[in-house]
Nucleic acid binder design. Structure first.
Lengths: 109, 109
DNA sequence: CTGATTAGCAACTATATGGTTGCATGAAGG
DNA sequence: CCTTCATGCAACCATATAGTTGCTAATCAG
């Protein structure tokens, strides 16, 4: 339903960095923030923040809007649902087959 | 409640590769498979498969068991729930933008 | 025992990634 | 107009990642 998204691997890869997860956390309150705002408490350069935002943008996790001289980013949470669905699919498939087969080896040397 | 896993970033990073997602998909039926079995249809070497499995192991996504001369891998889906919870937290915070407190609960069927 | 199979170890290569710095550009604001 | 602030662009560096090959060790099937 999301539309523009790419592969799940690309999405998870975008989530696979602590700095980017922090940026998502900052945007999770629904606010719009500029690049400098988003990098305010971070120990990295503005350019590094911009690159991270590019990755998030490429995965469809944020949206860019230009406002005057600054660029504002907002979270786009639809694609998070895609990630969740992928996880649920794997989990439910695993749960389903576990009910059928009981030859589950729990060997620990 | 999963226990052994590290940061969410590490977990998502482990999921951020199409080959590894494929391996997880293969194991999602609850089966135990050896390294060669898991690499059977893949265009990469056995060693490459082993490295991917190491990454999945490091993220707590699979479990290793030695059986004779082969090493069997099984999916360990608890940590998938952790990933899902992280996504749900962000999403629910975004949904309830104005201080609506919403519990993220572990639904366990 | 012999030979095939499964895996581990190590070295090596190529590319991706996360980070930096320097400089240029465009929009506010006095 | 001149300065300041927020970006953009490009080159560059170091490390991580994904992959390879070669060789060794252990286990299973004859």
């Amino acid at each position: 339903m999301s539309g523009i998204e790419g592969s799940p691997a690309r999405l998870f890869a975008a989530l696979g960095d602590a700095t980017r997860l922090g940026l998502i956390g900052r945007l999770s309150d629904g606010s719009e923030r500029s690049i400098v705002q988003l990098g305010e408490n971070l120990p990295i350069s503005r350019q590094a923040v911009a690159k991270h935002l590019d990755v998030l943008l490429g995965a469809g996790l944020v949206r860019r809007t230009r406002s005057g001289r600054e660029v504002l980013f907002t979270l786009q949470p639809e694609v998070l649902v895609d990630a969740r669905n992928w996880l649920d699919q794997v989990k439910s498939q695993w749960d389903g087959t576990l009910g059928r087969f009981r030859d589950f080896v729990e060997n620990q040397p």
